[in-house]
C-alpha cells in the first residue's frame, strides 16, 4: 500500500476505541478501509494511529426500532445493506443505493459509517440518508448525541464529528404511509463517481393524487448533500403528475455553483441537477403508489 508509517490498534470494546480516539488527535477510526486507505495511499491526509473498529459488536448489525424504523450500525457494509431483508422491507431504496456502490469487492468491505464520515461529495449514501430524515448517533468518551443527517455533512471531507467522537449508528425513521423514495445519478460509467445526483422522498395523499410531503436532496451540486427547500415547497400540495413535478423541479439548483471539470461544466451540471431531481421524484411517486417504500426501478 506504500503508506506512510502508521500505528495500528484494534480495540476490544467501543469504550476502549473511544478512549484511544479521545487521547490521540492523530488517531482515526478504520472500518472497511475503502476510503481511508485510499486517502492515506495518495497521501492526501496523514494519520498517526489507525483504530480498527471493524470488529466491534456495538457497531454491527441492523435492528428494527420500536417505532418501525431502522437502526444501522456504523460498520454495516454496503453488501449487508443490500442483502438485508429489514432494509429492503421498509427502506427498499437504501438497499438499492448500497447495491450499486462500486463493485462487489468494495461492497463486501465498505461501511455505511465510513461512507458518511469521509463526507466525500461523490459518496452514494449521504443524499439518500438526508432524504430519509436519518439521524446520526454519535458517541464519545464523555457522552452521546444525535445529529440529523441534514446537519451532519459540513463540507468536503468535513462532518459534525468533534475530535474524539465516533459515529456508532444511524437511525432511519419509518416512512409515513404512502411514501416512496427515489434516487438518480449521472455518472461517466457504470461504477464511476457520480457527476450529479439527487435523492427524493415523497408522501402522497389517500388518493395517491397529491403530494403531501417531500424531500429533494441534491448531491455533488454543493459540497454537501443539500435539500432544495423551494422545490420541496412547490411539490408539497402539488399534483403527483409529470407536469407538476417537472414544473416543481425546473428551478432546482438555480443559483448554485457546481464544479466544472473534464466531465462537464457547471452549467451542464446545474441542468442535470434538474433532470436528476425530477427523475428521483418521479421514482419516489411511483414507489409510493406501488406501496413498497421506494421500490421502483432506479438505483445508482
Amino acid at each position: 500500500m506504500l503508506l506512510e508509517q502508521v500505528e495500528y490498534v484494534r480495540p476490544q470494546s467501543l469504550d476502549e476505541a473511544l478512549e484511544i480516539l479521545a487521547n490521540d488527535d492523530g488517531a482515526a477510526p478504520l472500518a472497511g478501509g475503502q476510503s481511508l486507505t485510499n486517502v492515506l495511499k495518495n497521501r492526501v491526509a496523514s494519520v498517526d494511529v489507525l483504530v480498527d473498529i471493524s470488529a466491534l459488536g456495538d457497531l454491527a448489525g441492523i435492528t428494527r426500532t420500536a417505532d418501525g424504523g431502522l437502526s444501522i450500525g456504523a460498520c454495516v457494509t454496503y453488501d449487508e445493506l443490500d442483502r438485508s431483508a429489514e432494509v429492503r422491507q421498509s427502506h427498499w431504496m437504501l438497499g438499492e443505493v448500497a447495491a450499486h456502490i462500486e463493485d462487489q469487492q468494495i461492497r463486501n468491505k465498505g461501511t455505511i459509517g465510513g461512507n458518511c464520515c469521509l463526507s466525500d461529495p461523490t459518496n452514494n449514501l449521504p443524499p439518500i440518508l438526508v432524504a430519509l430524515d436519518a439521524v446520526m448517533e454519535l458517541r464519545s468518551r464523555s457522552g452521546r448525541r444525535s445529529v440529523e443527517a441534514a446537519d451532519f455533512f459540513k463540507g468536503y471531507f468535513a462532518t459534525a464529528l468533534e475530535p474524539g467522537e465516533l459515529l456508532v449508528s444511524i437511525t432511519v425513521p419509518q416512512m409515513p404511509e404512502r411514501s416512496g423514495a427515489g434516487y438518480a445519478s449521472l455518472a461517466v460509467g457504470a461504477d464511476a463517481k457520480a457527476m450529479v445526483r439527487a435523492a427524493a422522498r415523497v408522501t402522497l395523499d389517500r388518493d395517491h393524487a397529491t403530494i403531501v410531503d417531500s424531500r429533494v436532496v441534491l448531491a455533488r451540486v454543493a459540497h454537501v448533500p443539500t435539500r432544495d427547500a423551494e422545490a420541496e415547497a412547490r411539490l408539497n400540495g402539488a399534483d403527483a403528475t409529470d407536469d407538476a413535478v417537472r414544473a416543481a423541479c425546473a428551478g432546482v439548483a438555480d443559483g448554485m455553483q457546481p464544479i466544472t471539470d473534464v466531465h462537464g461544466s457547471s452549467e451542464y451540471r446545474r441542468q442535470m441537477a434538474k433532470v436528476m431531481a425530477r427523475r428521483a421524484v418521479d421514482q419516489a411517486i411511483a414507489a409510493a403508489r406501488g406501496g413498497r417504500n421506494g421500490s421502483s426501478a432506479g438505483g445508482n
Binding site: 495518495n42 463493485d103 460509467g189 457504470a190 461504477d191 464511476a192 471539470d261 466531465h263
Partner: peptide, 13 residues
C-alpha cells in the same frame, strides 16, 4: 491522473 477521474471501461460498461 487516477481512476477516480479516468473511468476505465469494465465488464459493467
Amino acid at each position: 491522473p487516477s481512476f477516480y477521474e479516468y473511468h476505465v471501461g469494465t465488464a459493467m460498461d
